[in-house]
């Protein structure tokens, strides 16, 4: 086999290998990792917002959930944006 034929053959093989790798469905571990990351990205700002809001509300005199609700809503928005960015980057 000449050098050129070898280069053509090896290149075609590498292209096939890359395409097969991309087409192969993700394994259970991959799906769990991906789903877990998306979930964490979404949930973390919500939980952080809830805790921060609750703490601020305790500092205010009387009963208030204004900051808790506001920061939870902000956390949902931030979490959704984070998850969207992650999914977009990965796709």
């Amino acid at each position: 086999m000449s050098d050129r034929e070898r280069q053509l053959e090896e290149t075609a093989r590498d292209v096939r290998r890359l395409e097969d790798h991309e087409k192969r469905p993700a394994g259970l571990f991959g799906i769990m990792f991906y789903g877990g990351t998306v979930g964490l990205l979404f949930v973390t700002p919500i939980v952080a917002g809830a805790y921060l809001g609750r703490w601020i509300d305790t500092l205010i005199e009387g009963y208030s959930v204004r900051w808790t609700v506001s920061l939870i809503v902000l956390g949902i928005a931030l979490g959704a944006y984070n998850a969207y960015r992650y999914i977009k980057e990965r796709s």
Partner: peptide, 12 residues
């Protein structure tokens, strides 16, 4: 990527 093999053959 899909065309590189053909491009390579054409250039050769």
């Amino acid at each position: 990527r899909a065309k590189i093999h053909d491009q390579l053959a054409a250039e050769m």
